[in-house]
């Protein structure tokens, strides 16, 4: 087995440089690579372009990289719940490219599947269609317009899984899966941080979500806060 294990987050991100493009897994604060984000804050790399569905909250997740002004551009689908983000965006300090959530997922998927473009109906007739090629296709019995969307091109993908093995195979837990599998497939270099790192052979091959071929570096995160954004409960 090829061994993908690195010591920690600092080692995993050591060659991430200023002005690079990063994909970061997670939906809201669920399934985000907490340890790598903290390591990026510590390292102080600047001018980053971050592809991530959301931008964290003010004091957690990607919000930490925004506080320190390390992000030049965000490519996301939803960025509410982050006052600092809104301030930087409205003042023009931060470039923001908002794209539909399914388009975001599919542009990651296209990169991982080796397809330069995909066609999706999301955003036809809206401002996000401006400057994009539109084509008519007949599909499922109806003809309609589709936008041509390009596969993402990123330097690094940073994902978080529940379990991983030394060969880089990954298993996600519950909705912490979200964007992680397709981002893992899409990175030129993919870094996976996991809650539990096990020896190759311990994970059932039938249960692997991301095969190790997509993962270049793996480590067990030092600690996980796993903050809940909206705690909603019923009384017993």
């Amino acid at each position: 087995m090829i061994n993908k294990v690195v010591k920690n987050a600092d080692e995993a991100i050591k060659d991430i440089k200023d002005n690079m493009t990063l994909m970061l897994g997670g939906f809201g604060l669920c399934g985000i690579p907490e340890n790598c984000i903290n390591a990026l804050v510590k390292k102080g790399v600047k001018g980053l372009t971050c592809i991530s569905n959301n931008a964290g909250v003010d004091d957690f997740g990607l919000g930490l990289l925004l506080q320190t002004r390390q992000v030049k551009k965000m490519i996301s689908s939803y960025v509410g719940e982050n006052a600092e983000f809104e301030r930087q965006m409205l003042s023009g300090e931060l470039e923001v490219d908002l794209i539909p959530q399914g388009t975001l997922a599919t542009r990651c998927m296209a990169a991982g599947y080796g397809m330069p473009v995909v066609f999706t109906p999301a955003g036809v007739g809206t401002e996000i269609a401006q400057g994009k090629e539109v084509r008519k296709f007949k599909f499922n019995g109806t003809e309609k317009d589709y936008l041509m969307e390009h596969a993402f091109d990123s330097d690094f993908a940073i994902v978080k899984a529940w379990k991983g093995d030394t060969a880089g195979n990954l298993v996600y837990r519950s909705t912490a899966r979200n964007f992680n599998p397709m981002m893992a497939m899409a990175g030129k270099i993919t870094i996976a941080e996991v809650e539990h790192l096990v020896p190759a052979g311990e994970l059932d091959p039938d249960h692997i979500h991301t095969p190790g071929i997509y993962v270049h570096r793996i480590f067990q995160g030092e600690k996980y806060e796993k903050r809940i954004e909206q705690r909603t409960v019923r009384k017993k």
Partner: peptide
């Protein structure tokens, strides 16, 4: 129920939720 929240299990509104019997989980694509 109070105390059973799971940070890994949220809905699209980022609220903690539960799964019913027969449910499934998949990626965003």
């Amino acid at each position: 129920f109070e105390g059973d929240e799971d940070a890994d299990l949220i809905n699209a509104g980022k609220q903690t939720v539960t799964l019913l019997n027969g449910s499934s989980i998949f990626d965003s694509a």
